[in-house]
């Protein structure tokens, strides 16, 4: 069949989008550009400072070098405290997030009221940043690592709880049915029918959150909630850039190690 014959037999012209759809798509592109321009305009950014930004950056970098390595002796303590804050905060999360996830999942919550409570806790926890939680807990416990631990936990409960609750909502209901059919109690159904199914998600999420918490706990000191942040903040205020660079390198090292640990653990979960 020649091309002409073919075109005669199947005369339909195929187009993925109608002209109307194409028009709508370009309208969206235009809209996005407009929003970006509008935002920049509203912010009234002083472009003047941008002119010598590259010089300032270079100057800052020069003042950081060489790092004042001896300072490491002073920050080892706060650095370890930072890791402890993250780890203890995550430990509290483990204990609190699982029951909250269970009442926040539609298929395991006892009733509509408990479901609402569960969802409310998850949303409340996630809507506030760790540093803001830090301000709250410093007001409650006074400055120090205790405030840091609880602000880490307060933020992480929402993160872990939400992901675990979503995993619970997606479990194979057949396994639950089978355990119910044996005459098991409600708690036993959770224990044998539900939790084994979401255990990889629980472990994976907790380790991932621990890794995030290590990073977040480095700035908790800015608001007085313990850890290396206090030292970092005071060095920045004193323009002691040689010290700041030591701390940035140390934090980078810790974050690298925690990422490695978290990735390894998640790879080994089956």
């Amino acid at each position: 069949m020649t091309v002409d014959e073919h075109a005669q037999k199947y005369p339909e012209v195929w187009k993925r989008f109608t002209p109307r759809q194409t028009l709508i798509r370009y309208a969206w592109y235009l809209g996005v550009v407009f929003v970006a321009i509008w935002s920049l305009d509203t912010l009234e950014i002083p472009w003047f400072y941008f002119l010598d930004a590259h010089e300032e950056a270079g100057d800052l970098f020069a003042r950081m070098i060489p790092p004042y390595w001896a300072f490491f002796g002073d920050i080892a303590g706060p650095l370890i405290e930072t890791i402890h804050i993250a780890t203890l905060g995550t430990a509290i999360t483990v204990l609190l997030a699982l029951p909250i996830a269970i009442i926040a999942a539609r298929n395991t919550t006892p009733n509509a009221f408990t479901w609402f409570i569960g969802r409310f806790i998850l949303v409340a926890s996630r809507s506030v940043n760790t540093v803001v939680w830090g301000l709250v807990f410093v007001a409650i416990f006074g400055p120090g690592p205790m405030a840091g631990i609880w602000s880490i936990a307060a933020r992480s409960i929402g993160f872990v709880g939400k992901l675990v609750a979503e995993a619970i909502e997606e479990i194979d209901q057949g396994m639950v049915e089978a355990i119910e059919a044996t005459g098991a109690s409600r708690l036993q159904v959770l224990l044998i029918g539900v939790i084994p199914q979401v255990l990889p998600v629980i472990f994976g999420t907790i380790v991932y959150r621990w890794d995030i918490n290590i990073r977040e706990s480095t700035v908790l000191g800015f608001v007085g909630a313990g850890g290396i942040g206090i030292v970092l903040y005071s060095s920045i205020n004193q323009f002691a850039w040689h010290e700041v660079s030591v701390m940035l390198i140390a934090i980078f090292g810790i974050v690298l190690v925690s990422e490695f640990v978290s990735a390894t653990v998640r790879n080994h979960i089956t």
Partner: peptide, 19 residues
């Protein structure tokens, strides 16, 4: 629950707890 203890059930998709 007590009555269910006396009724064994077997399923098409086996419904074992896989892990």
């Amino acid at each position: 629950r007590k009555a269910r203890r006396r009724m064994g059930m077997i399923f098409q998709e086996y419904n074992l707890v896989e892990r």
